[in-house]
């Protein structure tokens, strides 16, 4: 799985560029590179549904982010001196990575999952639903309540955007 490691390193480098670069539009483009690398990783890890979804969602997210940053007159941002915050953040991240490295040994090894619930879906999914795409049968038949909750969250987010951006009832500035 050498290509997986290469893509992960590419994503980490792109993420560091996105975090550290001063220009906001360059930062947004670098985050787009992270998302497209994630789409390629999904394809390598045998998840074509997720690859299509991530590719399309990334493009829409990029358009919305560029819309938010363009025409705002602050191309360069000043980070300022903030030593205590930097120090405590780095300390916390080091502690987190150390504990994570210890606890990762309890996970099943990469490539050999447990599949306790999913074995049932793999065995009975095609007979019970008749759908050839097993992900679709899990999303819309076995676990349709998840999809119902997702629809509720999406509806709430759309309503929130409409309420925040509307002009009716706002004071004249």
């Amino acid at each position: 799985m050498i290509e997986l490691h290469l893509l992960l390193l590419f994503m980490i480098v792109a993420a560091i560029i996105a975090v550290e670069v001063k220009d906001l539009i360059s930062s947004v483009v670098a985050v787009g590179a992270v998302g497209l690398g994630l789409s390629l990783i999904f394809l390598i890890l045998k998840a074509p549904d997720l690859a299509i979804t991530q590719l399309v969602v990334e493009i829409l997210c990029l358009i919305i982010l560029i819309r938010a940053t363009i025409k705002r007159d602050l191309p360069l941002i000043k980070s300022g001196r903030w030593h205590f915050n930097t120090f405590s953040t780095l300390l916390f991240i080091i502690i987190f990575l150390t504990l994570a490295y210890v606890s990762l040994k309890d996970l099943p090894a990469f490539g050999y999952p447990i599949l306790r619930v999913a074995a049932n879906y793999l065995k009975e999914g095609f007979i019970a639903t008749g759908a050839a795409n097993l992900v679709s049968s899990v999303v819309l038949d076995f676990r349709a309540y998840d999809t119902l909750g997702e629809a509720t969250v999406l509806f709430t987010a759309v309503m929130g955007v409409l309420v925040v951006m509307r002009r009716i009832g706002r004071k004249h500035e």
Binding site: P48, D49, A51, I52, A131, A132, N133, V135, S136, S137, V139, L140
Partner: peptide
Amino acid sequence: GHLTPGGG
């Protein structure tokens, strides 16, 4: 969506 990758 129920035959090939994709869906709603």
